[in-house]
Structure formats: C-alpha cells, structure tokens
Simulated scan of single mutants.
Amino acid sequence: MANPERLGDEGIWFRVEEASSASAVRRAAERLAAQIDLGAGPTAALAIAAAELTSNLVKHADEGVLLLRPVRADDIAGVEIIAVDSGPGMVDLAYSARDGHSTAGTLGIGLGSIARQASWSDAHSVPGRGTVLAVQVWPGPAPAPGWAGGVVRPLTGEMVSGDGFAVRVTQGRHQLLLCDGLGHGPLAAAATAAAVSAFHTAPAVPPAALVEHLHRALGHTRGAAVAVAELDAAAAVVRYAGLGNIAGVVIDGNTRRGMVSMPGIAGHQRRVVREYDYALPRTGVVIMHSDGVADRWRADDYPGLLTRAPQLIAATMLRDAGVRRDDACVLVARTPG
C-alpha cells in the first residue's frame, strides 16, 4: 500500500472486505482532494462517491478492491476511483443503476448516486465475472475522455511497484511507454521512475530512437524492460519498439496481432533496437502489459469491453489476468482523434 499521506499518481489500492473500509477510503479521498485543491463542493461529492462505491463492494462484491488516484488534464487535476470486483456481475448496468433497484435487499440508490456525484463515470459488467466501475471528480466540468489510460498494482506485500507507464502527445506524436523495472521494490521503482522522467523530457522522435534514449538514461539504475508505441491515426498504423519482456497487442474485433519486443534490458544489455509497424484500424485498441499480467485473456469473453474507457479495460484485464506474485501494469489506448 502506498503512503496515503502523500499520494502519488500511481495511486493507492484498498482491499474492501468489510464496512469499516469506507472510513479509510473516504479519509484518503479527502486528503487527496486537499492535496490537489479540488474545492469544497467537489470534495463533498467525492466523499459521497467513495462511500457509495465502498458500500457497493461490501454488499455485492467478491474480492472487491478499489484504486484511488489523482488524474490530470493540462493544468487541471481531479480524483479518480476505480472499483473492481469478481462478484455476480450485472446483465443490464443501466437498469441496475436506476434508483430503487436492488440486488441485496437494500434501497438500490448506490449506482445512481455515484453517477450523480461524479463529473464522469464509466462501467462494465459481465454476469459471473464481476463489475468494474470508474468515476472521476473534477473541480469543474470533466475534460474530454482520454485516448489512453492504464493501471499499476504492486506485488502483494510491497509498498511500491516496479512497473509503470506514461503517455504523451508531443509535436503531433501520440506515444505510450510501459516499463518494468528489474526485480521488485524501491530499486525497481526507481528504474521505472527514471524511464518515465526520460520519456517525458525526450525529443519528439520515433519509438526506436526513444527506446535508445531510454537505454542511455537508465544506465545508472538496475535497468528495466521498456516498450514504446506510437499511434498514427493518419497513417492507420501503430509503430512499436521494445527491449525485454513487455507484451503488446493490437485488437480489432476478433482480430488480435502481437507486437514484437527485442531481447535485452534497457540501461544494461541491448541488441539492435528494431521498430515495427502494425495496422491500426479506426476501431482498433492497443494493449501493452508487463509480465505481471498473464497473456491468457480473450477480448470476446468481455462483450462490449473494448468500447469502454481505456482505464476500465486495463482494470478488467488486471483483475482477471494479473499475477499476485509480481508487479503488474496494463496500458490501453485507442486510435486518437
């Protein structure tokens, strides 16, 4: 668990098993709201949403967890909560969100109340698999939904994750980074932090050149597996380059194409860095993940999921394919524009 007194952008995970979890989640949400100067009204709305989400997990969920983190758009910051469960799921989310509907013998105002308090929300549910619900609270109107989003979870028992991701748009280039610091714990997290910093400050170059830049920047760290993808909507391609065990796929309907990373460790060992182009249909989705996520999931097991928000897709994958004995990270993007 991260330090809730000063919450970083990676966020903090809560395991929600009993009603007493609600107070801990609410306090952490209020502290985060104060850190980013969310404002009194939005902070009150956030507290209500946090309480309702926690209550829903306690009443309806199996293995419920909740991620609390800051979100940013340009110079504005908000708060995001992602609630994940492996409960019975819902056939019709819209119907279940109506006031008065209940599946636990209680007044079913939870989902409707959450949507009303949030600046933005999205959800996906599959009967027998569970539900993932994401809400954001902003100081004003919610920004336009992002073209990319991800989630990170540390190895069970660790305070920090050695996995991480970053997203940037520079000189028209829509680029993604996924990084897996070698090993676990603070030194792995330091390698990933160095990669993220170097990614954000790097010149606007193609993925292979960017991976070379990261390789040089990580020489003082224990090293990491890294991969960079660039989504080019005009050319209808995704350009991809990687070193080490990072998985990348392009999914469009029932078509799934794997993307190739070269062997090596950024910062220490590398062969020739190669960049590959893959077709990116307008409806295509790019998914990248560390080896803390097993490559055993199938998109057709989740009807409608690929149309939802990127972070919702990422959280669903992490729930069902994440490995508890390793740090885990999933990053999802769809064709920008």
Score class of each variant (00 low, 15 high):
Ser102Asp: 03
Ser125Asn: 12
Ser102His: 01
Met90Trp: 15
Glu80Ile: 08
Val91Pro: 13
Val126Leu: 14
Asp92Ser: 02
Ser121Phe: 09
Ala97His: 00
Ser121His: 13
His101Ile: 10
Thr103His: 13
Ser119Gly: 11
Ala83Glu: 08
Gly108Glu: 00
Gly105Leu: 00
Gly100Arg: 05
Arg98Gln: 00
Thr106Ser: 15
His124Phe: 14
Leu93Gln: 09
Met90Asp: 13
Leu111Lys: 05
Ala104Lys: 05
Ala118Cys: 04
Gly108Trp: 02
Asp92Thr: 07
Gly78Asp: 08
Gln117His: 05
Gln117Tyr: 05
Asp92Cys: 02
Ser86Gln: 15
Gly78Cys: 04
Gly105Asp: 06
Arg98Glu: 09
Gly87His: 11
Ser119Met: 06
Arg129Ile: 15
His124Ile: 15
Ile81His: 02
Gly78Asn: 04
Ala118Arg: 07
Val91Phe: 14
Ile109Ala: 11
Ser102Val: 02
Asp99Tyr: 12
Val91Lys: 14
Ile76Lys: 10
Ile82Thr: 05
Ser113Lys: 06
Gly110Arg: 08
Glu80Asp: 10
Gly112Tyr: 03
Val79Trp: 01
Ser102Ala: 08
Arg116Leu: 06
Ala118Gln: 08
Arg129Val: 14
Asp92Phe: 03
Thr106Pro: 13
Leu107His: 15
Ala104Val: 07
Asp122Asn: 10
Asp122Ala: 11
Val126Gln: 11
Ala115Leu: 06
Leu93His: 07
Asp85Ala: 13
Ser86Ile: 13
Ile114Tyr: 02
Ala123Lys: 03
Gly110Val: 06
Ile81Gln: 06
Ser102Trp: 04
Leu93Arg: 01
Gly128Leu: 10
Thr106Tyr: 07
Ile114Glu: 00
Val79Ala: 00
Glu80Thr: 04
Ser119Arg: 06
Ala115Thr: 04
Gly78Leu: 04
His124Val: 15
Thr106Met: 14
Trp120Asp: 09
Ser113Phe: 06
Gly87Ala: 12
Val126His: 11
Glu80His: 11
Trp120Gln: 12
Arg129Trp: 02
Leu111Ser: 03
Arg129Glu: 06
Pro88Ile: 08
Gly112Ser: 08
Ala94Gln: 14
Gly108Thr: 02
Ser86Met: 15
Ser113Arg: 05
Pro88Thr: 10
Ile82Lys: 08
Ser96Glu: 06
Ser119Thr: 13
Arg98Tyr: 02
Arg98Pro: 03
Ser113Gly: 14
Ile81Trp: 01
Ile109Lys: 09
Asp99Thr: 05
Gly100Met: 07
Tyr95Leu: 05
Gly110Leu: 03
Ile81Thr: 10
Ile81Leu: 11
Pro88Gln: 11
Glu80Ala: 12
Ala115Arg: 02
Ala83Trp: 09
Thr106Asn: 14
Ile109Pro: 03
His101Gly: 03
Gln117Ser: 04
Ala77Tyr: 12
Val91Leu: 15
Ala94Thr: 13
